[in-house]
């Protein structure tokens, strides 16, 4: 009778070995050059080696363009290549900031730049305030034991997955003269509203659509913050008979504040950069009512027959400084949150 090995075969383990085998070989092969480099530069400098690919990528696509942009802002003319452009020093900045009264864009030499700044400020004020408010309310509701909670979370997050151009086109079709909203208004006996002809309505819809598109992302951040709050704090408050308002203002809000700060700063940064959605939705109109700073830069550099890259770069640098300050604030806020 032949001998039969009755040791059970572990298929998972076998599969793991098959998959792991080439990886082990690869690591073995990599070990030689890595060890040689480590001997050469010392273990302390090794993290830089691993960061190098990312740093090279970041340098090539962020740092180098940043310096190039600054260099362009010090030149004039219409030539594309920096070497062909005449140096103008700070003339482009002087042109941008040549204003009789900064509070009145029409008094500025480059009035559209200041209108862009003014419109962006108005947009940010309303968009960030309402975005944070609605995100907070939504996060609080979605954090409760409601029916089909997963479904509702998906519903609120879904617009974040859409391309900004798609979002803007959907809303444009809704809001046009013969769009769904006007059809509804007429069906209930109201007058048709030409939303994109009124500066107030155009700004309202720019803010609304932006909130609709991005709220899900910020809701998610706040929801994560809410779920990180220890439930025993609420249990203790309940045992003490604390009112719901007091629980919210004394427990929820203070513990959620670091997340709120991140949301506010991220929303601010996104708000300053707003372009695509509003460009497709309102085209910057009526007049210049929803023309924001990024659209000004785009128009100056690309849509005019004389493509003024120098002036557009100078405006970009101004925008860059604002974004840099906001990013530093965000980093500080994140650090504060991480440090508890």
């Amino acid at each position: 009778m032949p001998h039969v090995d009755k040791t059970p075969v572990n298929t998972g383990e076998m599969l793991q070995n098959v998959v792991a085998w080439p990886i082990r070989i690869l690591f073995k092969l990599l070990d030689y050059p890595i060890s040689a480099i480590q001997r050469l530069i010392g273990i302390r400098r090794m993290p830089w080696l691993f960061l190098l690919p990312n740093l090279a990528f970041f340098g090539m696509f962020v740092i180098v363009p940043l310096f190039m942009n600054f260099a362009y802002s010090l030149t004039g003319g219409t030539e594309l290549f920096l070497r062909d452009r005449p140096l103008t020093g700070t003339e482009q900045y002087g042109f941008l900031f040549d204003c009789e009264n900064y509070a009145d864009p029409v008094s500025c030499r480059e009035d559209r730049f200041w209108k862009g700044i003014f419109n962006t400020s108005v947009f940010i004020f309303f968009q960030v305030s309402f975005m944070v408010l609605f995100s907070l309310i939504t996060a609080l509701v979605l954090n409760r034991e409601i029916r089909a909670r997963g479904f509702w979370r998906a519903v609120f997050f879904f617009p974040v997955l859409l391309s900004p151009v798609v979002v803007a086109l959907i809303w444009k079709w809704i809001l046009l003269r013969d769009g769904i909203l006007n059809a509804f208004l007429i069906s209930i006996g109201l007058e048709r509203i030409l939303f994109f002809v009124s500066p107030e309505w155009a700004m309202f819809w720019a803010v609304f659509v932006s909130i609709w598109a991005h709220m899900g992302f910020y809701t998610l951040i706040l929801l994560a913050g809410l779920q990180a709050i220890q439930p025993d704090l609420y249990e203790a408050a309940e045992m003490d008979g604390t009112s719901k308002e007091r629980v919210f203002f004394r427990i929820t809000l203070p513990l959620l504040w670091p997340n709120m700060l991140v949301v506010i700063v991220l929303a601010l940064i996104k708000g300053v950069q707003v372009f695509d959605e509003v460009y497709v939705l309102t085209g910057g109109g009526p007049g210049t009512a929803t023309q924001f700073i990024v659209q000004y830069i785009y128009n100056t550099a690309f849509t005019n027959q004389v493509q003024n890259f120098g002036l557009a770069s100078a405006a970009s640098m101004v925008l860059g400084v604002v974004l840099f300050v906001l990013t530093l604030t965000q980093l500080a806020a994140t650090r504060r949150r991480d440090n508890g």
Binding site: T288, Q291, N304
Partner: peptide, 14 residues
């Protein structure tokens, strides 16, 4: 109608 000329900005064609 303001809707055509008034509803965009700059030199955009409509």
């Amino acid at each position: 109608s303001l809707e055509l000329w008034g509803s965009v900005s700059g030199s955009s064609y409509l």
